[in-house]
Design a protein around this nucleic acid. Structure first.
Lengths: 149, 149
DNA sequence: TTGCTCCTCACGTCACGTGAGGTGGC
DNA sequence: TTGCTCCTCACGTCACGTGAGGTGGC
């Protein structure tokens, strides 16, 4: 996603521009716990972000805009992702193929849930598109009929 | 859209169910002027709706949900439609082919604007779908690799 | 040191949700 | 007449916008 070579730290204004949001929105998402301030930052000091944070915010914004998820629902998505990342780290150590398989299957189910939401929206949009192009065609016919007079 | 034979009048609760909204939402849209109460209804009496109102509300809800338009933007869409419907009625009387053509072209432009919004969303959803199915494939590969152990 | 961006309240807004108390119409 | 749905305020909520007044860091 990000083409940065170094993990240059960023401030909130830059992150807002990169994600098409505002500083207020980013602070609000942080307040709701939508992404983690691992390093707890002293009160009053500037927030500091990495490329990974930009990716995270971009994903949140996209799921919100395109699928119409609420921030409460997005929090659950994010928490599920974090939980799987943690377990993944554990299994990388334990090396039990059966449980690794289990974990991978759970990830699949999670992604498939999102995919079905995406496809549902696509279907609705296709229907809307059909209706609109139908209207357009109807108008085109009328214009042609006028030309033949 | 509607399969009713008679134009049976409806009350707000039924309309809410048919459009997947709530009475509150419908009253709010009316308050903002998103659809017209042609017959000005005496204070305190029940609102009365037709199948045409149901269609209108369904369209508003769909544009809002799928394209993410605000109610302010939707009001402009609705007003533009109403304006065109009025002019259309006029031209049905006057019968000037040149002006009819002009009006039809304006309708086309209006619909094309909406179509481009729909297609933009479709592109974004396709990108999201690609990413998600890419992830899914990646996981499937990993599961296969585990099976080969 | 000067500017700019950032900080934290805190109130405003949009799009409704949710009662409270009362009336309409089959 | 009884029930149900509807009515109108009016306050609450979610997802931020928008200042006000002050501090951080290149």
């Amino acid at each position: 996603m990000s083409t940065e070579t170094a993990a240059r730290p960023m401030r909130i204004g830059e992150v807002a521009e990169l994600t098409g949001t505002t500083p207020r929105t980013i602070r609000y998402y942080e307040e709701l716990g939508l992404f983690g301030s691992e390093t707890p930052r002293e009160q009053g000091k500037h927030r500091c972000y990495t490329d990974a944070d930009v990716d995270q915010i971009n994903e949140i914004v996209r799921l919100k805009e395109l699928l119409g998820l609420s921030l409460e629902q997005l929090k659950q998505v994010v928490e599920a992702q974090a939980a799987r990342a943690e377990v993944r780290a554990e299994y990388r150590v334990t090396e039990d193929p059966a449980r690794r398989r289990e974990l991978l299957l759970e990830s699949s189910r999670h992604i498939e849930t999102q995919l079905s939401l995406v496809r549902g929206r696509q279907t609705e949009l296709r229907e809307l598109e059909q209706e609109l192009s139908g209207k357009l065609e109807h108008i085109a016919d009328k214009i042609e009929a006028l030309a033949e007079l």
